[in-house]
Structures are given as C-alpha cells and as structure tokens.
Design a protein around this nucleic acid. Structure first.
Length: 541
RNA sequence: GCGCCCGUAGCUCAAUUGGAUAGAGCGACGGACUACGAAUCCGUAGGCUGGGGGUUCGAGUCCCUCCGGGCGCGCCA
C-alpha cells in the first residue's frame, strides 16, 4: 500500500544530490524546504545559487538538465519539477498526498517520528530552582520550554532524560534556615531582629509550624526545610505536566567522590594555581575572561566548584551530551562552565541555552516582582489563573531568545485572540465532525480520495505532509516554538476550509467519506503535535 | 567600561537562520449562521524592518558604526 518513501524530504534531497553527482560530477548539500508560497509547488531548494560559483555551465542550463533528470526519477510521486528564479521547485502529485493521509490514519501514533537524533543520549537539565521558595514565572517558562523540548527530541530519535538539580547547600541555605528559625521563635513568642540576608515570605511560617509540630531536631533543620520546598516545587511542576527522570541534590554531590575527582584532574593537568590562600582554576586557558576561584581562602568550595563536580557526575553517567536551560541572569556563567568541562576532558559536551525574561501583564500593566521582599508571582498562581494549557502554550509562542510579555488577561480570554483556544478548537471541531458523520452513518473512507479536489483540501494535505519536517526542525534548532507555529498555520487553513465547505452531506456519501478521512488525519496530527508541547487535545470545549 | 539579548503595522509578535511580492492576531472599519460548533470565517485600512555605511546574484536576517530598551559582570548561589 505504501507507495511513498519513508521520509519525503530526505528522499528528494538524495535524488537531487545523486543526480548532480552523476550528471555534473558535483558534490553539494541539497536542502529542501516548504515553498514560501503554494504556487511555487510543495518543496523547494536553492542549491543552484550556492552552486553557481563552482560551475562552468550557465546556471539556467544546469537547472534545465537537473529538472529533466529529477522529473524522470520522481514520476511516481511528483507532478511538476521546475526552476524559477534560481529555485528548484517540486510539486508532488495528489496521489502522493493521499498516501500521506493513509500513512497518518493507518498509524497515528507513529506519524511524524523522524530519526534526527540517531539515538543520541542526552541529559536535559531545566528549572533547577534553588530550594528557597516557590517557583516563579521565569521557572515556568523554562519548564515549558524544557519539557516540550524533551518530548520533541524523544519523538525525533534522541534519548533524552530530564534532570532537576537542587542547590540545597551553601550560604543561601544557611540564610534560609536562619529565616525559618526566626519564625519558630516568633511562634514561640520570642521576638528578635530578622536575619540580614533572610528570606521573607509567608511560606516559611508554614514550614516553621511543621517543624514545631514534628519536633524536627536542630541538626536536621536544613534538610527538612530544603526537602519540603523541593517537594513542593516538584509537585507544582507535576501539575504543569512536567515529570523529571532524575532529581539530584547538591548535598549528594558534596558527599560524593566527584569534588575530589575534579580537584585531582585539574591538579594533575596543572590547571590550578594558588593566590591569597585560595585555589584558582586557569579558566583563561580555555577562553574565559578571568581565572575562577574554586576553593576559597577559608577552605570551602565555591558554587562553581560543586557545579563542576555535578556536571562531571552527569557526564560519567554516560551521556553523549548535556543540555542546560538557564535563566537570563546566568549567561556570564556559560564560558566558565565550558572552560571547566574542557579542562576535565569533556570538550564540547555541554550546550547551555538561555531562556529570556518574562514580564507579566495584568490590566495592561507590568506586575512588579521582587524576590527580596518575597513578592513574586508564582507558577502555582499562574496555573490557578490561566490553567496549564494556556500557560504552556503562551510560553512557547515566542522564540526563547526574546523577552516575553505574558498577558494574563489575554490568556484567560476565550476566542481567536487567545491562540491556544484557536488551536484546541480545531481538534474539538474535527472530533464533532466525525461524530456528526457517524450519526448520519457516514465514516472516514480512503477509497475516493481523488474527490478531494479543492485548493483548500490540497493546502491541508500539504501541511500535514510537512509535519515530520517540522518535528525535525524543532529538534535540531531546539525550538519548541516551531510546533506552535505549525499548529497555528494548520488551524488557519482548517477553519477556513470548514467555513466554506460542507463536510458531512448525506446527498454525497462518497465525498463525505473522503472529507471525513481528511478531517480524521487533521485530528490525528493535531493531537500528536499538541502532545509534543504538553497541551491537551479536548474533544469538547 | 566590558559581555549577552532585543528593536519589524497604533499594540503583541512571525518571517523556513542569507531567498521569491515582509506576514498573523489584537485594536479600527465593513460583511457572513432557517446546513456539520459564529470559541469560526471573509474583506478594507495600516511598513523607508530604529538611523547610516558595508559584504553579494539577493539583507529584516551577516559585518562595522551610532541611537534606544532589557539583563549580567563577587573568594554570592
């Protein structure tokens, strides 16, 4: 039944590449992409421009010959091959598009899977908030991007495991514990001045009450407080449909062999020096702007030191690559970490992505947030106000490099102005169309797909065909945002089609069967695409 | 001062990473349900892509420079 190649895009690329080699003895990369406009065909490549310099013949001659050769080889799947203003355009036959529909509906779970990753084993760390308070909205954005990326990359042939790192040690934890103690004393009626670097925030009062109730001993306070907050963070993330494969605590790292291992390797390689009683790492040997302290004058390790140990630990677990998603305040840290891992013998094993800031808008005004005063908008509050789906979708509407204005009022609105409903409505509408068909004894059928003659129908089939390419792009660029854009475009043409044409029509059972088959394919792809970004596909809204 | 991100329609943002005539939504104006969900659709108006220079077949995209906005630059984490 399957008459089309496993991966259309790569198939076309290989055909043209081979033809160039056999006809002109030229080797070059050929990339096909969706044409900017449907009038140009379906797939287009600009390799002729790139080739221009290395060719003796005029570009048009080469184009003409390639066009003929490629057409010959693609007769079974394409209608037209042409060169226009330097682009090689290919228009696939309707039969090919029909087979795409069959592929989708025969195996909805598999459609869109690609093997971009070739099984590369990846550790993806994101959020990793300090256990000093509830998760804020920047963490929410990182969670949305990170978790979607994991889903997408796993669908694209990678083996991705997600990880949360909790810095439950160090000075900030001392400050945190001091703040909790202040609350404990206050509850017991002992008034003292609030710790200088303490954490404000009512959530610490609840923890203090629990400590009194459970009679937690003094030496277990730090552990109890950080674990309580960590568990609360993970619980909130679960409500956000974010599950982690691994959770690692800094206390675990500190007690492990890895800090010692880091010191030993750096010492043996002579990447350390001593000054003012402190131990420095020669980060400048690896592109950083200055040497970095790893052991302070007082003999304690820096945050960077234990972070190096943590990353060494991750690498020794066998990953091919580490990916970290960090907030915008960490970009100064990238060079340092890359330098450190290179020195430890793992060059180019880490990719650090920065997710930009989030501003929350309410009533058209930015909400002011101050961590110090304990005033910030939490992920929990966001979930309560706009819901999981709108929150996740909104965080993916911009590329991760851009600042994001999150308009809470808009996210709560219902209608096209709120894109998440626009997309989910496409799924609900497909579902009710299929149901409506059943009530009239009309079912999706692939026997008369040639009746799908309308330009809008071709547009939809074409878009469905591009889904695997979209998954590949999103994975390679590490931009979940690509999936969101795809859904919005598909929704546009689908709603347009629906509005103009009747799908279920008892007078025309054959046409109805074909159209319902198309609708079923749309529903299947939308459901899958939404699952890749962790958004529900409702059948009723 | 140094480093990173951003500047595109009145507003919020896209633009297949250097490609074809720069596109959507909101807002404004005008239309479409006695047929499958109007949470939808169709149309009109709106642009010197912050300014200037460069690179080339081709620049919103790359380089230089200036202007404007955000963030970061601890033996904090």
């Amino acid at each position: 039944m399957e008459q089309i190649p496993e991966n259309l895009k790569h198939y076309l690329e290989n055909i043209v590449k081979d033809t160039l080699k056999s006809t002109f003895n030229v080797e070059t990369e050929v990339v096909f992409e969706e044409t900017s406009k449907p009038e140009y065909g379906d797939y287009s490549s600009n390799f002729l421009f790139r080739l221009k310099k290395g060719l003796s013949e005029p570009i048009q001659t080469v184009g003409d010959i390639i066009t003929l050769e490629v057409m010959k080889k693609l007769q079974h799947i394409a209608d037209e091959v042409s060169t226009q203003t330097g682009f090689l355009n290919i228009k696939l036959s309707n039969k090919t598009l029909h087979n795409v529909l069959r592929r989708i509906n025969n195996n909805p779970e598999e459609y869109g899977k690609v093997d971009t990753g070739h099984g590369e084993y990846i550790n993806l760390e994101f959020v990793s908030a300090n256990p000093t308070g509830p998760l804020n909205v920047v963490s929410a954005r990182a969670a949305s991007v990170g978790d979607s990326l994991k889903r997408i990359m796993n669908f694209a042939g990678y083996r991705v495991e997600s990880e949360f790192y909790s810095n439950n040690a160090g000075r900030q934890v001392e400050n945190l514990v001091a703040s909790v103690k202040w609350w404990i004393n206050k509850i017991k009626g002992i008034e003292e001045p609030f710790p200088l670097e303490g954490y404000r925030g009512e959530y610490l009062k609840d923890i203090a009450e629990k400590i009194i109730e459970k009679k937690i001993p003094e030496d277990k306070l730090a552990e109890f407080v950080t674990d309580t907050i960590l568990n609360d963070q993970l619980e909130t993330l679960r409500e956000f449909d974010v599950e982690y494969d691994h959770v690692t605590k800094e206390t675990f790292i500190r007690e492990s062999k890895y800090p010692g291992l880091v010191l030993r390797i750096l010492k043996e390689e002579k990447f350390l020096f001593f000054e003012d009683g402190a131990t420095f790492f020669r980060a400048t040997d690896f592109g950083d702007t200055e040497p970095r302290v790893i052991i302070r004058r007082d003999g304690t390790g820096t945050y960077f030191f234990y972070d190096l140990a943590y990353h060494l630990y991750k690498l020794q677990r066998g990953y091919d690559r580490l990916i970290n998603i960090l907030g915008p305040d960490h970009h100064g840290y990238i060079k340092r970490m890359e330098a450190g891992l290179t020195a430890l013998g793992y060059p180019k094993k880490i990719k650090i992505m920065i997710v930009q800031q989030v501003s929350l808008l309410k009533n058209g005004e930015k909400i002011k947030m101050s961590k110090r005063r304990g005033e910030f908008y939490t992920l929990k509050e966001l979930l309560r106000e706009v819901g999981k789906d709108a929150a996740r979708f909104f965080f993916l509407m911009r590329t991760k490099d851009a600042h994001l204005d999150f308009d809470i009022d808009l996210a709560r609105k219902i209608g096209k102005e709120n894109p998440v409903y626009y997309v989910q409505y496409m799924h609900a509408r497909s579902h009710s169309l299929l149901k409506h068909g059943e009530e009239n004894s009309l079912y999706p059928k692939d026997s008369n797909l040639r009746l799908l003659q309308l330009p809008e129908e071709r547009l939809i089939m074409r878009k469905l065909m591009f889904f695997p390419d979209t998954v590949e792009r999103a994975a390679l660029r590490m931009e979940p945002h690509e999936i969101v854009r795809y859904l919005l475009q598909l929704a546009d043409i689908f709603h347009n089609y629906y509005q103009k044409n009747r799908i279920v029509n008892k007078e025309k059972p054959e046409l109805s069967g074909a159209r319902l088959y198309l609708v079923l394919a749309v529903k299947n792809v939308v459901k899958r695409a939404l699952s890749l970004i962790g958004v529900d596909a409702p059948v009723k809204m």
